[in-house]
Design a binder for these strands. Structure first.
Lengths: 170, 170
DNA sequence: GAATAATAGTTACAAATGAAACTAATTGCA
DNA sequence: TGCAATTAGTTTCATTTGTAACTATTATTC
């Protein structure tokens, strides 16, 4: 069943026209992301008992370890509570190892354990396959545009979120 | 601070290359949607005490009332528990009116109250302004492409979610 | 070089969410 | 009819999430 129509963006509609939720871009992005996160969450969760925040931490540690929690926050775009909890679960599962930064004993140095690395390496092809399947419908030019638009819109959203004034006429 | 790089999609990377979370499309979509939902949630919440699910219900009722809860589920892409709770809060706030369908007394007939309509009409321009601001950076061609891609990807995500096999090689 | 402020990370508590059990009403069918 | 199966919607309970308070350590300042 097709729930969401395509056509002009809602914001191009004049003020007297009815508001069309199904064309409202933030709504469509939200539905899209929820569907995709759910599908991908099943992917990690079913076989490895990982939630998405945990997978994000593992993916970043695989590349940049050792990292402190604060650096994980920056790299994963998660807040420090989320990171703290993801790290705690991964440590309990034996997928990461924590040591204390000797130069600053508040900071931790986090890295994947060998079993964590093995899980990571097993998941990566699945994640790539899922992404490929998701965009399989798109022509090469559309993929490039999508990639570029995601960059632009992320910048924009970060700016608007930080400014906190998304509705003002600025 | 720019967190997310642009470039080729992660799925185009070869199997021996490191996994780049910051280029992984589901990750970028998730970060984007969370930022945007947070910004827009503040918009509805601050002035009107509405959460996003409630606003969605109001937007759909404004156009299609009277509706039963099940129809709200279809139109908002929310599940019946979410809808039930959103309806309960809106009823408590006096923004919607519920009557019982005389032909099937399990079903309800929901519509906006006059104060609900007033709130709706006050929010619509704010929502439109927020969307316009969000895509203000985009050239007209990019807006059209975004609109089209959202449609394609939503279809795709619905299919993959329903099939539950996003990682298989199908 | 103490006292204060700032920072890294965790914990606690409250609100939101999701899955499953439940109630009430209707439909199907013997 | 009468009983099982289905459907609409709500409630319950466990989990997740977000904000704020907290602990431990380091930096600053007088």
């Amino acid at each position: 069943m097709k729930l969401i129509a395509t056509g002009i963006a809602e914001s191009e509609a004049g003020p007297d026209e009815p508001f069309l939720l199904e064309r409202f871009i933030p709504y469509r992005l939200s539905v899209l992301t929820n569907l995709l996160s759910r599908a991908i969450g099943r992917l990690y969760g079913r076989r490895f008992g990982l939630a998405i925040p945990e997978w994000r931490v593992m993916a970043v540690l695989a590349r940049f370890a050792p990292l402190a929690a604060a650096e994980l926050c920056t790299r994963t775009a998660m807040d420090k509570v989320q990171v703290s909890r993801a790290v705690a679960r991964l440590k309990a599962a034996g997928y990461i190892v924590r040591s204390v930064d000797t130069a600053d004993r508040r900071r931790s140095r986090l890295r994947l354990s060998s079993s964590g690395r093995a899980v990571h390496d097993a998941i990566v092809p699945m994640a790539r396959a899922a992404e490929a399947k998701f965009i399989a419908d798109l022509a090469p030019a559309d993929r490039a545009t999508l990639d570029r638009l995601l960059g632009l819109l992320l910048d924009r959203a970060q700016t608007l979120d930080a400014a906190g004034n998304i509705a003002d006429k600025t």
